[in-house]
């Protein structure tokens, strides 16, 4: 039962982040570049709670992102899944209260995520590859994501504590 509530809370958080992305961060771009709250969410929850939650959140958020933004279905789901998986894998090596490491991983993930994303779109949809534009947008998005990550850090720590408590009770049962 407790697991159900934890799942529900996580789902609500994903919906909330999607809403924030569409209505707040889309409306306040940084020099025309939008933040990606999904990366911040998946990285934070992956690192703070582990592989299972990281992957689950990655897939669900990716599906929402694909439905609402993508030209084709699946690309973002795959990318968010990979982010959730790798961040969940490095979960054990991190202190839960280490804000700077989570911010640093968010920055690195944003750079890798957006580079792969742009290259995939260039290959699939024959985009004109504009290197400088890609670099400029990725730098700005990384800065934006880092700011959001540092603002929402406490909230993610609180959420991860709820999830971890739920997980412990599940293992005890």
């Amino acid at each position: 039962m407790r697991n159900f509530w934890v799942g529900l809370i996580v789902f609500v958080v994903i919906i909330l982040c999607t809403w924030l992305q569409l209505n707040i961060f889309n409306a306040i771009p940084l020099f025309g570049v939008k933040a990606n709250v999904g990366i911040v969410l998946v990285v934070a929850l992956g690192i703070l709670t582990g592989k299972t939650v990281g992957v689950t959140v990655g897939i669900i958020y990716g599906i929402f992102f694909d439905i609402l933004n993508g030209k084709s279905f699946g690309m973002y789901t795959l990318l968010f899944f990979v982010v959730g998986y790798f961040c969940g894998k490095i979960n054990r090596g991190f202190s839960k209260e280490n804000k700077s490491s989570i911010i640093m991983i968010t920055a690195i993930t944003t750079i890798i995520f957006e580079t792969i994303c742009y290259l995939m779109l260039c290959i699939i949809y024959r985009y004109d590859f504009v290197f400088l534009d890609m670099v400029w947008k990725i730098i700005l998005e990384t800065i934006y994501n880092v700011i959001i990550s540092s603002i929402l850090f406490k909230a993610f720590v609180f959420l991860s504590e709820i999830i971890n408590k739920g997980k412990r009770s599940y293992y005890l049962l």
Binding site: V33, K34, N69, Y118, E141
Partner: peptide
């Protein structure tokens, strides 16, 4: 009702 959150795509719902 919404515009793309991606910086690489220009789509609308």
């Amino acid at each position: 009702i919404s515009e793309s959150a991606s910086n690489w795509e220009e789509t609308y719902i």
